[in-house]
Design a protein around this nucleic acid. Structure first.
Length: 111
DNA sequence: CAGTTGACACCGT
DNA sequence: AACGGTGCCAACT
């Protein structure tokens, strides 16, 4: 896992590995890669995710506050919340409810 | 090769 | 407690 691949690719790998009904943060992914300071890189990687043919559940990735900062980058604003609610994740005011409970550490479950 | 960007995280006020 | 400014790393132009 994320050994030969670039950080860039690792982000996609980890993001796709996020289980149904779970969410994670940019920092967690970056930290999992071994670069805790590359949180911005994660966002940038996801920015290019829509250029790929593979579907990336980027709606499950939020900032450390549980805020849906990237919803504006989706095809339709609000789609991100729709997807989250479809996964039994409550979203109020662009913020994931019980975010800490829904939080899923990629490194702990991916190893 | 060097500068700029990027959907953040952390510290200070 | 909330808001603003600074710092990080890697990829893109």
């Amino acid at each position: 896992m994320l050994t030969e691949e670039s950080f860039f690719q690792a982000v996609y790998t980890v993001t796709r590995a996020i289980p149904y009904g779970r969410v994670t943060t940019y920092g967690a992914i970056a930290r999992c890669m071994g670069s805790p300071g590359a949180s911005r890189m994660v966002g940038w990687a996801l920015n290019n995710c829509h250029t790929l043919d593979d579907f990336i559940p980027a709606h499950r990735v939020v900032n450390r506050h549980g805020l849906l900062t990237g919803k504006h980058h989706f095809r339709h604003s609000g789609l991100m919340q729709e997807l989250l609610e479809s996964e039994d994740i409550k979203v109020i005011n662009d913020c994931v409810v019980d975010f800490e409970e829904r939080f899923w550490d990629p490194c702990s479950n991916l190893i």
